[in-house]
C-alpha cells in the first residue's frame, strides 16, 4: 500500500513538473513505473516481485502477447516457424545479465536508437497507436519480470542449467 502511494505520488509529481515546464505529456506515461538505467542495464526489478520463469516462457512463445518468436528462434522444439530478424535466444542467459535483459525488453533504443526490437515498457515517441493499444505498454511490469526470469535460465553451459 505504501509502495503504491509512492508511485502514485511520483506520477503526480512528474505530471505537475511537465505541466510547469510546458511540455506535452505523453498520454498514459504517468502510469508507467520509473526505471533507473545504470551502465546499459536496469539492475532493479520493475516490481520487486521475483519473475516466474514458467509464466515467462509462456509469454515468450505466445505470438499475440510476447511476440518474441516472430523475430527470435530459440530452444523451443515444439514451436515451428520462428523468425530470424533478431538473434536466437539460445544461451542468452549466458551472454546477458538480468539487468541487461531487462533494459532490452523495456526500451532497447537506449542502447541502439535504430533497433527494430519493440520497446515493451515505454510509450516514448509512439505515434498513430491503434485505439485498442493506446496509452498502454506492450507488456505489464510483472510480465517483463517473468520474461527476464525465463531468459536468464537459457544457458548453453549444461552445468548451469536449472533442474527441470
Amino acid at each position: 500500500m505504501r509502495r503504491r502511494l509512492y508511485w502514485l505520488w511520483i506520477g503526480c509529481a512528474v505530471l505537475a513538473a511537465r505541466v510547469e515546464a510546458g511540455e506535452e505529456a505523453e498520454p498514459g506515461a504517468e502510469r508507467l513505473r520509473p526505471v533507473a538505467i545504470v551502465d546499459g542495464a536496469i539492475p532493479a526489478s520493475l516490481t520487486g516481485v521475483p519473475g516466474d520463469p514458467a509464466r515467462g516462457r509462456a509469454l515468450v512463445v505466445d505470438r499475440t502477447k510476447g511476440l518474441c518468436l516472430l523475430c527470435h528462434a530459440g530452444p523451443f522444439p515444439e514451436e515451428r516457424f520462428t523468425g530470424n530478424l533478431g538473434p536466437a535466444l539460445d544461451g542468452i542467459g549466458d551472454r546477458l545479465a538480468p539487468g541487461a535483459l531487462r533494459l532490452r525488453l523495456v526500451d532497447g533504443r537506449v542502447l541502439n536508437p535504430d533497433t527494430i526490437m519493440p520497446s515493451y515498457y515505454s510509450l516514448a515517441g509512439t505515434t498513430r497507436v491503434g485505439a485498442a493499444w493506446r496509452d498502454r505498454p506492450v507488456l505489464e511490469p510483472q510480465e517483463i519480470e517473468d520474461i527476464v526470469a525465463f531468459l536468464a535460465t537459457l544457458r548453453d553451459t549444461p552445468s548451469e542449467r536449472p533442474a527441470p
Partner: peptide, 11 residues
C-alpha cells in the same frame, strides 16, 4: 528516478 522517467518520456 524522475529524471530518468522524464528523459524516457520526452525523448
Amino acid at each position: 528516478a524522475l529524471l530518468v522517467l522524464a528523459a524516457l518520456t520526452v525523448a
